[in-house]
Amino acid sequence: MLPSPIAVVEAFVSDFPLLLQNSAITLQEAFIGLVLGVSVGFLIAVIMDAFDTVYKAFYPLLVITQTVPSVAIAPLLVLWFGYEMTPKIVLIVISTFFPVAVGLLDGFKSADKDAIGLLRSMGANRFRIFCHIKFPTALPQLFSGLRIAAAYSVVGAVISEWLGGFAGLGVYMTRVKKAFAFDKMFAVIFLISAISLGLMVLVEFAEKKCMPYRHLNKKNRRKI
């Protein structure tokens, strides 16, 4: 029932071309879903921040969308959108837009009121205030949300592949499950974890690039 680590490695090597092929599909879904999800999350956060009535009216609804388990709606999405890529991407968008939207909203709301007042006194309009203050202030929260969203995107892709699809790591998983190939099961589980981890590392790398001021070397920090 529990394969030896060596068996898992062997399964991984022998099925490597197949795993690679399926990973490409899953990654593609995850990537498209993530980009769309982040865009939707960004748009929602910006609109809710700009219009308080929209925030008050729709924020509770937003929370409710997250109480619906994605496993429960995935079969519905398959029935509606078929076995191709669309239902997978829709599911990923649904599960990734939320952490991004909530993180950004919190970030926007934490912007320094005095700094906003200062820029207003200099004649800045709302767009300028957004670019110079609100967005950069929200960057740390955006990246926190993004890290969660990146992990969700891979999981979302795999789950929706389980429930109907022609290719991808989820489909591969259901096949090896039916064959009781435990070694292959473990191999693909490790692969999925590795992919999630890889995406998170990428996000972290982007974070460091985008926010050098948060990673000032404390030792070399001299007060001038």
């Binding site: 005095d114 700094a115 200062l118 207003r120 006194s121 200099m122 004649g123 203050i133 950069p136 001021y213």
Partner: peptide, 18 residues
Amino acid sequence: ESGHVSYMLQKDLLLPYK
């Protein structure tokens, strides 16, 4: 009308990310 005269506070309000 804003945009004519600016001010400076006790808090320097320098943006930490710039």
